[in-house]
Computed example of a mutant assay.
Amino acid sequence: MISTHPYTQLTPERVMDAIEAQGFVCDARIFPLNSYENRVYQVGIEDQQPLIAKFYRPGRWSREAIQEEHDFLLELQSEDLPVVAPIAVNGQTLFFSDPFFFALFPRRGGQAPELSSDDDLELLGRWLGRLHQVGANSAFRHRPRIQGAADMALAGEQVLRSGLMPIDYHASYESLATALTDWAGKLYRPDDVHTLRLHGDLHPGNLLLRDETLYMVDFDDCVQGPAMQDIWMLLSGPEQEQRQQLLVIKEGYEMFRPFPQHELALMEVLRSLRVMKYAAWLCSRWDDPAFPAAFPWLDSHRFWSEHIIMLREQLAALQEGPLSMPQY
């Protein structure tokens, strides 16, 4: 069966035509980079450094939502934050080549930082403190806002509607999803949560160390939410190690703004939400040919068995109460 997904139209020729329409001359060297949600390419430019071209998934974000991502990056760049902001052409950073919005970025190489290093964690804390200081200056109008229980309920519905989960797991999944959503509703009350503009997906894969500068990259999931969303994903290991990591991050963070220690109670809600949304994301993208090829195990019993085990662990974590930090 021939796929009719829009990304099948995105040939190398289409990519080059779109970029050359913005005044660049491509040298026909196009390398696809690792990205599933969007399509991202390194494109050679005659007599210049290569560019990174990002073609946004049609229908996912509105023009206004993508422009808010760009404006946030430009604002952070103007404050000397280590981000990779889009390139402006005639004052514009967002372009259109039907049916794709796309943007161009300078190329940045580098390597993942060692988050086991206190120096890197303290530096990250400083960058986050500054990022959140800028993020608190105004609010997103067109980007998503983390809603907690409502987001979990939607993720559960997307999984069950997809038909990819074997039927014998439905009852266990529905029971766990309901319990997690109930706990999220108790612990995360959107009207009571102080929110700001965030990176939203600050896992180690979105950090890049280059020439002793630690870049925060890929703001595609920037969101309005609690500061803890940008902090908890930097933690790893058993609880004692996570406590120590939090102390190091806090030390750097508090050079610029108070550390949101009161949001530790939200951490397991945010972690549970990510687990549920990851499965829902895979299910909702199954019509994209890249997904069955990259994630062939999604409809297997093994994947859903492991997913349900993770949800049970998250339910236990929510019931146990928040991680605490020592007071000094």
Rank of each mutant, 00 (worst) to 15 (best):
Q67V: 04
G321S: 07
A280H: 03
M216Q: 13
E157A: 00
Q42N: 11
D168I: 03
F303L: 06
P113M: 12
Q49S: 15
V193K: 02
T181I: 02
E241N: 03
W281E: 01
V275L: 14
V269C: 13
A150H: 01
Y41S: 08
L323D: 06
Y169L: 00
P226A: 13
V25H: 07
R141T: 12
L115N: 13
Q319T: 03
P238V: 00
F55I: 14
F95L: 10
Q77F: 12
S284R: 07
M276D: 02
E306H: 11
W232Q: 05
Y278G: 09
L154S: 01
M165D: 06
T195Y: 13
H5F: 03
G148H: 04
P6I: 01
P58A: 08
F303V: 09
R39P: 02
P296W: 07
L176K: 00
G156Y: 01
A177D: 00
A85N: 13
R107I: 14
D287E: 05
L180E: 00
M1N: 01
S3M: 03
W61E: 04
H262S: 07
A21G: 11
D17M: 15
L246K: 02
L124M: 15
Q147V: 09
G185M: 00
P296F: 09
D218I: 09
A136Y: 03
P258C: 12
V193L: 02
A21V: 08
D192F: 04
S300Q: 08
A65P: 14
G163H: 00
M228T: 13
E313M: 05
D192R: 08
P226Q: 07
L123T: 15
M216F: 12
P99K: 02
Q9W: 08
Q261H: 12
D119Q: 14
S300W: 11
T181N: 00
P296C: 02
G252K: 08
I249L: 10
Q240F: 03
R39F: 09
N206K: 06
H142R: 11
Y56D: 08
R271D: 02
N137D: 15
H170V: 02
L209T: 02
V25Q: 08
P6T: 04
G205K: 12
R107M: 14
Y188L: 02
S35T: 08
E254K: 05
F295G: 03
V84E: 10
L154R: 01
R130A: 09
I2T: 06
M16R: 12
A290I: 11
C283D: 01
D287V: 09
F31M: 10
F291R: 01
E239S: 12
A112D: 14
R243F: 08
S324Q: 14
Y169D: 00
R29A: 07
V193P: 06
T178D: 01
E174N: 00
L124P: 08
D211S: 15
A28L: 11
A18S: 14
L273I: 08
G109K: 09
L128W: 12
H262P: 04
R274V: 05
H142W: 13
V83L: 06
A227D: 11
Q42V: 12
Q319M: 04
S138H: 11
K277Y: 00
M16Y: 06
E68M: 10
E263A: 05
S117A: 10
I30P: 01
G91Q: 11
D27S: 06
L124K: 14
H301C: 10
A317N: 10
F102L: 11
G148L: 05
A294I: 00
I30H: 01
R143Y: 09
F140H: 01
I309D: 15
Y36L: 06
W281N: 02
T4D: 04
R143T: 07
L73R: 09
